[in-house]
Computed example of a mutant assay.
Amino acid sequence: MKEGIVKSVSKSRTHTFSKNICDKIILIKGLGVEGDAHMGEKVKHRSRVAKDPNQPNLRQIHLIHSELFKELKNKGFKVLDGELGENITTEGIDLLNLPKNTILTIGDTSKIKITGLRNPCKQIDLIQKGLMKAVLDKDKEGNLIRKAGIMGVVLEGGEIKVGDKIIIELPQKPYVKLERV
């Protein structure tokens, strides 16, 4: 089993792009982060609500690896935890290469099932010009790589705070590569 840690937690009651850093967040089974605008069984992201408000919410919680911020710093950007809209900033886990349906156990009781990649949007450039391009890349075959984190649903609720251990439980093989959700 691989492990990582929670570097920061954040939420926002309104549909702001960035989220506010908190001492802790509370996950609610099947809904998401208590007090966060994206909490719910049905989709809450405004662009998806406009298309079909009855879609299941596969984006209840957003995680970003802190290693991305270090990479961005090397490209001349200064990005703070919560600024890209994540609820949990992790350290020590290669989030982008986890397979779909991986279970992350965080703290004593919280469990998150990974549903896919976050598709970065042009609002990122409102934080810093050129940031959108910096969170996208291409692999050797020319396929798009989305680096703006992963999305998940809450399987088991509980409290999450800075320093909590994250344990990774991979799904059964064959693994399914993460796609945008």
Rank of each mutant, 00 (worst) to 15 (best):
K2L: 14
E3C: 12
G4S: 07
G4T: 10
G4W: 05
S8G: 02
V9W: 04
V9S: 01
S10D: 07
S10P: 07
T14I: 14
T14G: 04
H15Q: 13
H15Y: 05
T16D: 15
I21K: 14
I21E: 14
D23P: 01
D23M: 10
K24Y: 11
I28S: 10
G32R: 00
V33H: 03
V33N: 08
D36K: 05
D36C: 04
A37H: 08
A37G: 05
G40C: 10
G40D: 08
K42G: 07
K42T: 05
V43D: 09
V43W: 01
R46V: 13
S47L: 12
S47V: 12
A50N: 14
P53N: 09
N54Q: 11
Q55W: 13
L58S: 13
Q60S: 03
I64A: 09
L68W: 10
F69S: 11
E71D: 15
L72D: 03
L72V: 07
G76R: 01
G76K: 08
K78A: 09
G82V: 05
L84W: 11
L84F: 12
L84N: 08
N87K: 04
T89H: 03
T90P: 10
I93A: 11
I93R: 11
I93D: 09
L96S: 07
L98T: 10
L98M: 12
K100T: 07
N101G: 02
I103W: 07
I103Y: 01
L104Y: 06
T105E: 15
I106Y: 09
I106P: 00
D108S: 13
T109K: 15
I114P: 02
L117I: 09
P120F: 04
C121S: 13
Q123W: 12
D125A: 01
L126N: 13
L126E: 14
I127H: 00
G130Y: 03
L131D: 05
L131C: 00
M132S: 07
M132R: 10
M132Y: 15
V135G: 03
D137Q: 01
D137F: 08
K138G: 00
K138V: 12
K140H: 01
E141N: 13
E141G: 00
G142V: 04
N143K: 14
I145K: 11
R146P: 00
V153K: 10
V153Q: 07
V154Y: 06
L155Q: 08
E156C: 01
G157K: 09
G157R: 02
G158T: 06
E159W: 07
K161F: 01
V162A: 09
G163D: 04
I166F: 03
I167D: 04
I167P: 02
I168E: 06
L170E: 04
P171F: 00
V176N: 13
V176F: 01
L178F: 10
R180M: 02
V181I: 11
